[in-house]
Amino acid sequence: MTRKEQKEKTRAGLVGQAETLFALNGISSTTTADIAKALKVSHGTLFVHFSTREDLIKAVVDEFGEKLSTALGARCSSDLKLRDLLKAHLSVLAEYEDFYMRLVSESQSLPPHIRSILYSMNASLSYRFYRAAKAEMDKGVIKKMTQVHFFNTWMGLVHYYILNRDLFSERTPILVEVGEDLLRHFFHLIKT
């Protein structure tokens, strides 16, 4: 392995380890020392790759964001139907559910820049979903409603189940357990 490959491997290891510990113990209660220790690298090594703790959190969030935008048909193939978009959204959230639950539950105490990235990702989702929804509203298939109401209703439903997942399912990810049911219910609500 070349030095460069070794460096990339360590960086990826740190991002993966950070995600695991954030998911397990929460974002604000996980220190950079915890992450370095779990990966068996020195604390100094971590700072060679990420100059601040915030940079490391950002790397985990960015990875999640890229998965999301790939799954939702970024790069031209944006003609996915509403149902497929929402399905893809659920499946990426399910994949990142342990970490995502922390992001949502700790939203108000996240570093402000991280929070602004999270809500910027949500803005992209909102535009993407609403573009697909608008097409179906125009055809009279689903009810006309504002972009904010449409998006926040969907997010409200999904987040409620994620935040209380211990109450609604014995198994995780809860979105694998209840995702299809939520999707069916959401379409029941919005259809004309």
């Binding site: 809500y119 910027s120 803005a123 909102s126 904010v148 998006f151």
Partner: peptide, 8 residues
């Protein structure tokens, strides 16, 4: 962009 998409 934040306002229009999410009602902030």
């Amino acid at each position: 962009y934040y306002k229009e998409s999410q009602g902030l």
